[in-house]
Computed example of a mutant assay.
Amino acid sequence: MKRTITHLADGRELIYFDRRDDADRSAIDRRPLGPRPVASELRYDPLTEEWIAMAGHRQTRTFLPPADECPLCPSSETRSSEVPANDYDVVVFENRFPSFSGNFGSYEEAGGLSEVRPGAGRCEVVCFTAEHSSSFSRLSDEQVELVMEAWADRTAELSAIEGVEQVFCFENRGEEIGITLFHPHGQIYAYPYVTPRTKLQLAAARRYAERHQGRNLYADVLDAERKGPRVVAANELWTAFVPAAARWPFEVHLYPHRQVPDLAALSEAERSAFAPLYTSVLRALDGLFDVAMPYISAWHQAPVRQERELGYLHLELFSIRRAPGKLKFLAGSESAMGAFVNDVLPEEAARMLRSQVDH
């Protein structure tokens, strides 16, 4: 793999990940870009003890442009995009409309009981392929491995930034989910705090270890699920299963069989084994109702500086589609109270997905 670092016209970093060592990445971004926005403002909610990012500049981000105006496609002689090269394998660059960044401005007190501080951190875009009309499910195994190399590289690099507490790699797919660009891509958030969901899970893992002679909660969940009826697909190094208490109509968790804290810690064999298993599950989702399923794919990694021994890298994949023409909306109970009601029995969801997995 060849890794090439360059910069866009406004100073944002861009990194090419190529299979070929002779890939030419000398193209320059000549667009007349304006100044970069200042970092968001973090406000503390004393009622939930959570930090909320206020990022007004994101209101102006590009929204569902036509294919010939896609900012993630390679540049051409007649049009410049976010990627100066006329082709690429995988590319990562700093988000033009970040939720977190190192470009600080001035911040005033919000009043009340809310503390205010800069939204320090970093947000990156990961383009999985130069092919605008493709999808992650259609990537070759080799291409998925290159994406994983990029995820691992960025996890290690972002974890080394002062003040970053957690690194989150994810993909949003589908208009129903709220995407703003159709091109196959994901994002990486380097948070200046440990996220609320991770805090809850680590607290549960900590209590479990105290009650069970130091055993790891995630490892025991995986072990139990591998013996049960909700396994969707598996190989020697990974297992994909629907969790017993799934929140979403179709939700699949993918675990490596070896406990590792993050993507950077995966072995070459584990990265290779992930690719065919994951894309088969994605195709199974699409096959359920013969439509491109909207989904969120979220890597859960251990925090950068605390309780890493409790963490266990895994991916959570879920769709809000519950039936043909029907979506799972987060209405009163879920949105107001955080109390989920699932319309699809997890065992039935696993059976339906198994029937669609490539054999």
Results as ranks from 00 to 15, higher is better:
Pro303Cys: 15
Arg19Ile: 14
Ala204Gln: 10
Ser75Phe: 09
Val91Tyr: 04
Ile320Cys: 10
Arg96Cys: 01
Leu217Ser: 05
Arg322Phe: 07
Trp299Glu: 03
Val242Asn: 04
Ala234Gly: 10
Phe329Cys: 08
Gly112His: 03
Val126Ile: 12
Glu50Ile: 11
Arg230Ser: 00
Ser80Ala: 15
Val164Met: 10
Gln201Gly: 14
Thr6Gly: 10
Ser114Thr: 14
Arg321Ala: 03
Leu310Asn: 13
Glu307Ala: 15
Asp223Lys: 09
Arg247Met: 00
Ala284Tyr: 00
Asp68Asn: 15
Tyr191Asp: 01
Val341Cys: 01
Val242Met: 02
Ser75Asp: 08
Ser355Val: 12
Thr198Tyr: 00
Trp248Gln: 07
Arg247Ser: 01
Ala9Pro: 03
Ala284Met: 08
Thr279Pro: 06
Gln166Cys: 12
His132Arg: 10
Thr180Ala: 01
Asp153Trp: 12
Gly111Phe: 08
Ser135Pro: 14
Pro229Gly: 00
Gly102Phe: 02
Val90Trp: 03
Trp238Val: 11
Cys70His: 09
Phe168Ala: 09
Ala245Asn: 00
Leu266Gln: 06
Arg31Glu: 02
Arg211Pro: 09
Asp141Trp: 06
Ser267Gln: 08
Pro229Asn: 05
Ala204Met: 06
Ser134Leu: 01
Pro249Tyr: 01
Arg58Leu: 02
Asp141Arg: 05
Pro324Val: 14
Arg354Ser: 04
Gln301Trp: 05
Pro324Gln: 09
Arg61Ile: 00
Gln166Gly: 11
Ala336Leu: 13
Glu108Gln: 14
Ala244Gln: 02
Ser99Gln: 11
Gln59Asn: 07
Glu49Gly: 04
Ala85Arg: 01
Val281Met: 05
Ser137Lys: 13
Val147Arg: 06
Lys326His: 06
Asn103Lys: 02
Ala284Arg: 07
Ser137Gly: 10
Arg25Pro: 11
Thr279Asn: 05
Arg19Gln: 14
Ala156Trp: 04
Leu222Arg: 03
Ser114Asn: 05
Ser76Trp: 06
Phe241Lys: 02
Leu254His: 05
Gln356Asn: 05
Asn342Pro: 03
Met54Phe: 12
Glu109Tyr: 13
Phe63Ser: 07
Asp262Cys: 08
Arg197Met: 09
Gln306Asn: 11
Lys199Thr: 13
Ile28Gly: 04
Phe93Cys: 05
Ile28Arg: 05
Tyr218Gly: 06
